[in-house]
Design a protein around this nucleic acid. Structure first.
Lengths: 173, 173
DNA sequence: TTTTATTTTCAATTTTTATTGAAAGTTTAA
DNA sequence: TTAAACTTTCAATAAAAATTGAAAATAAAA
């Protein structure tokens, strides 16, 4: 397989993976393109290679910069902006984990905290109220666990991630 | 807060969380409703409580059954079907992890394997080809890691999950 | 300042995804 | 069998999300 075709397949696959995880296909594809490009790309480079509009590129590179996984690169004597992706995949994973925790885990934990305060009322049987409280408590425990696990992974340095964590797993895992 | 309002907020929050993770809002809401319902619910119960059509309920409970997190319950002397959610949140997480690995991790690993076979060609510089191969290799390593981590979590029993894994994390993590 | 290059915004449009509802299908009971 | 109760399917429709493209904004150069 030649490089062009391989890149194309990677961009397609990354886009599909992204959309399964709630990231827009195009945003994932812009990320994929930057990941497999040696230098930084201009808006026009991205427009050309992915066949999408200027506005679309702009929106998506900014979103990727919000995630911290794409950086703007300014070149002396060049007016336009160039974009490049963080190439260290472990760091990419860490940054994504961090953002998803902030954007998704924290809000649901807040909701769980609020609704765990449910009070007994004549409209519901004690059994119903108790079952609800227990379920929410279990979900809170799990969310706390996920939150702590995320903290550990985020704080941990790469070495820990690749060695200590690996040791956890059986060789034939 | 009263039970009804708490349930409503949970269903809403779970739906929002789901859509951030690539699960349709309604599917997540059906799941949430079943999670906080004491007994099993009929199609009509779900239609009424979520204000959605019969076809929509049918589609979504079947999808949830495909994920293994909702079961059909048959009652003697009753012709209609009732549905109930797996209530053990750890098991829910395990089943979801298992399915997502199968549906999303495996396909991207297959793509990575294919494109890692990229061959040198006159159309690309050696530097470009090498950079690509290196990047794909790094992603493959990371995917292997994720795959093994998933295997370990899936195979592990609940006790391991809650104790051994917890020990990994610092108390102040 | 004025011009030019470039980025950003956003209303209109297109595309994708979800939903409906009624017909067809299935199962059980009479 | 036939009828009744219920489930499933799917074409049509609605809703949501993504995309465009051109105008407005911004920044640099002349």
């Amino acid at each position: 397989m030649q490089l062009d075709e391989a890149k194309r397949k990677f961009i397609e696959g990354w886009g599909t993976l992204g959309s399964a995880w709630g990231v827009s296909r195009t945003m994932a594809q812009v990320h994929a393109l930057l990941l497999v490009s040696v230098g930084a790309l201009s808006t026009e480079d991205i427009m050309d290679q992915l066949q999408i509009s200027r506005g679309n590129v702009n929106m998506n590179v900014r979103a990727l910069m919000d995630w911290g996984i794409v950086r703007k690169e300014l070149r002396p004597g060049e007016r336009r902006e160039f974009f490049s992706a963080e190439k260290d995949i472990h760091r990419v994973a860490t940054l994504i984990l961090q953002e998803r925790r902030r954007r998704e885990l924290e809000p649901i934990m807040r909701v769980l905290g609020e609704i765990s305060q449910v009070e007994p009322s004549p409209a519901a049987t004690a059994e119903e109220t108790e079952a609800f409280t227990k379920m929410i408590g279990n979900i809170q425990n799990f969310a706390d666990f996920a939150n702590r696990a995320a903290s550990t992974l985020i704080k941990a340095d790469e070495n820990w991630f690749l060695s200590t964590f690996m040791k956890l797993m059986r060789p034939n895992g």
